[in-house]
């Protein structure tokens, strides 16, 4: 039995005009699944449906994971709370533990000085670290990622991915992520789902069996070239770009 099963027959922002149709996939413990597609193809909408933030008109999403966290494209920190209080916000539903919040903040590369500051006083990368700490402190077993590092430069992005991977490996977390970056998908995912067409459907699923630690730069490069030859990937990225 899988822990998250997504089965969406139809969803649209306006009911008569579906954006997403006939999508089925499953996520299990410790699995990383990447959804790729051109911008505007419905990736974020699909992620929100899977996380239960919105509901399909027809179909269902069954989630047996205990705790979930979601990293949005923007950090969505509360500007009126300092960083420490922003991190502990995710604990409000259970029990606020400032000591633990400090530990996680340290792990994400924040110091005590940073924790006293308001989000507007921090750089984009630092804000993203706060958002990461806020997500991980709840110890989620399922993580939704909506291109959280899209706005960061590539060095910082690399570092953030390492932080993320460290946390995922440590706790055997399952991840459902959205990206338009093939490199990122090949580097992290066990399975890649390609979204294309209008309304969006799954045009291709690609499993990657090679273990994550052994995926070096060369492997990623070769694999990317191979994927970019696939007709499904070419068309799904072309639909909107014409």
């Amino acid at each position: 039995m899988s822990l998250l099963s997504v089965n969406i027959k139809e969803y649209g922002y306006m009911p008569i005009y579906p954006n997403i149709r006939n999508i089925r996939f499953e996520v299990n413990i410790g699995q990383i699944i990447a959804i790729i597609g051109a911008s505007g193809s419905g990736k974020t909408t699909l992620l929100k449906l899977a996380a239960g933030l919105i509901y399909p008109h027809d179909g269902d999403v069954i989630n047996h994971f205990n705790k979930q966290a979601y990293l949005f494209q923007e950090t969505r920190l509360l500007p009126w709370k300092n960083c420490l209080d922003n991190i502990t916000l995710s604990q409000l539903a259970s029990k606020v533990d400032k000591k633990k919040a400090r530990q996680y903040a340290l792990l994400m590369g924040l110091n005590d000085e940073d924790l006293k500051k308001y989000p507007t006083e921090l750089s984009g990368g630092m804000r993203q670290r706060v958002a990461l700490a806020r997500a991980f402190i709840t110890e989620p077993d399922l993580l939704f990622l909506d291109e959280p590092f899209g706005a960061l430069d590539f060095m910082l992005r690399e570092e953030m991915q390492q932080l993320l991977l460290g946390q995922i490996e440590l706790q055997k977390r399952a991840v459902l992520m959205v990206t338009h970056d093939l490199d990122e998908a090949i580097k992290l995912a066990d399975m890649i789902i390609v979204l294309g067409g209008e309304p969006a459907e799954i045009t291709k699923s690609i499993s990657i069996s090679k273990s994550r630690e052994t995926r070096d730069a060369e492997y990623i490069f070769v694999e990317k070239q191979r994927l970019m030859q696939m007709p499904e990937i070419i068309t799904s990225f072309k639909v909107r770009n014409q």
Binding site: K48, W80, L89, L92, A93
Partner: peptide, 24 residues
Amino acid sequence: ATLNEMANIYQLSLWQKLIHLDLP
């Protein structure tokens, strides 16, 4: 609405959302 979505992910109660998100 984006902040509300974030609060829903972390299962904040209506009262907590009012105090921490809405009133400010």
